[in-house]
Design a protein around this nucleic acid. Sequence first.
DNA 1: ATGAAAGCGCTAACAA
DNA 2: TTGTTAGCGCTTTCAT
Lengths: 339, 339
Amino acid sequence: MRERPKIKDIAEKAGVSVATVSRALSGSALVTAETRQRIHDLARELNYRPNVSARNLRTRKSMAVLLVVRDVGNPFYLDILKGVEAMAREAGYAVLMGNTENDPVREIEYFNMLRDGHADGMILMTGKLPPPAGNRSGSWNHLPVVVALEMIEGSGLPHVQVDNVGAARAAVEHLISLGHRRIAHISGPVPEPMSVYRREGYRLAMREAGLAIPPGYEVRGNFLLESGEDCCRTLFDLPQPPTALFVANDEMAYGAAHELRRMGRDVPGEVSVVGFDDLYLSKAFYPPLTTVSQPRAEIGRTAMGLLLSILSGGSLGTGEPIVLPTALNIRASTAPPEA
Amino acid sequence: MRERPKIKDIAEKAGVSVATVSRALSGSALVTAETRQRIHDLARELNYRPNVSARNLRTRKSMAVLLVVRDVGNPFYLDILKGVEAMAREAGYAVLMGNTENDPVREIEYFNMLRDGHADGMILMTGKLPPPAGNRSGSWNHLPVVVALEMIEGSGLPHVQVDNVGAARAAVEHLISLGHRRIAHISGPVPEPMSVYRREGYRLAMREAGLAIPPGYEVRGNFLLESGEDCCRTLFDLPQPPTALFVANDEMAYGAAHELRRMGRDVPGEVSVVGFDDLYLSKAFYPPLTTVSQPRAEIGRTAMGLLLSILSGGSLGTGEPIVLPTALNIRASTAPPEA
DNA sequence: ATGAAAGCGCTAACAA
DNA sequence: TTGTTAGCGCTTTCAT
């Protein structure tokens, strides 16, 4: 037996042609049950495994997908990755990790990997599309790419997302229904769409309740913990500080709550805090964080499902984005304002 | 210009052979600077990119590595992944995610992917080696595999790890130095080595301080949040409950602290808690968690570096495991016991 | 310094 | 139902 058996070895032992072996192994109906059985037995006996490079070259497929995020170190992506991975492996696809760190060079690099045959399709969660230079069609919308989580407006690509405006609005309405009037917002890095939408939800809820947004009540953060602390400090340096905070993600909400504690302000006694994302630690946080929960695993599964249907030549759907539902998880970081 | 230019297209336009183009593009010295330049220009103009499947088939390499973990959803792996990814892409390797969920079938599957040419090497963090069935050599130790984080004793494979015994011991010694005597331990899922080692460190520190471990003071958890809560409850149902907890990972420590709060016991006023891992949220936790910090990104980088040196035919090192240093981060969840 | 040619291992026409 | 054969696009001897 040679180092690594190939189809030819099986063919010789079985006394058939390589074509027959290939067919038998791929379960083609054009092989008698008897020869198929014989070949399968032989394959097992020789511990045969097909060479993927050869198959990929011939079939022009790689059976791999690329999952591209801004920062692999961000815990937010975990459940999405998990959802993608689960669906992918079920369908026989491997998952390649892409990490851009907001670097345009890398963003292009991953598109190139797609072209190079490293992967058959891509799930893009960076919210950005590199300029279509060197791309004949002048656009990306004929590539097997699904945009998830962070939308890319006008891209013409299939999207899987949540209603950030509506979810943010519901979060702020919760605060208002508790009786809060002075509600501030720590936003993400506007003008990125996700941040803009969440801020929009905040503004909408405030306006509908007839509440003015005092100057300085909108502070721009960057989604990181420290940023939550900093923004919180800014907010409470105001002459008329807020009684409630709507923070654009949980991580900054942790930072804000942390900072409030440091300043000796009780949460939710003196200040209520609402986050966004429902990271899995938010329920163990002290106080357990009221926050908007996104169906992360579902986002991953849906995006991968969409990509699979594209890869299998299925329709691209309606072109309308798929919007998954969010939920407001009311826990212990919100309470009525002090009397 | 054809759909996707290949070497042949460039060769024709340049009036040279495909061999010359291949050489020029790979930077071979056997091409005149002039033709090399011409070919490079042409390649850029045609927007040429090599087909990876073809190259992989020919070179018998995939320029990809497989990173296999028990649970891609676990935040602990994030920084490791980040470290691996950074080193990998620097060296021109792609990173494939593997997720076993402790399923032996999947564990084998990833080894098969290695054999099949899906990846050139593997970083294994599952702490388990599938039975070497169908493996001629009867063992795995000639495969390009680096074991990280969770050691696999007797595997003969290169290891990157931390000194779990020593780190755990230092953590418990901290508790002892604060004056605690009744120190309990919430362990991981013994008899898995990592859990056993951390428990061993606990026992060692206790013995050296001349402290007996009362019956029931060692409770077995599973590294998950809820498990921390459950174990904590068990511990405080004891007639003589502990004044300090050494918990085998941060996630369970969060759970334990959460449960203590629910029981109305102040941390660290009434009970001190030490964790292990230093997840990035531990400092934002309330109270900020005293915990053992592992150099996660460094573990990832080191493992990938080791794998790269193996893949480039370098030595396998001494065979001795590489042990990376840990540090005890003392924060606010530990204090002297009540008088 | 360049070219011709032989594959890498597989799949898929096309024949039989 | 099976076999023959032609590639997939690239790298790499071996000639020249």
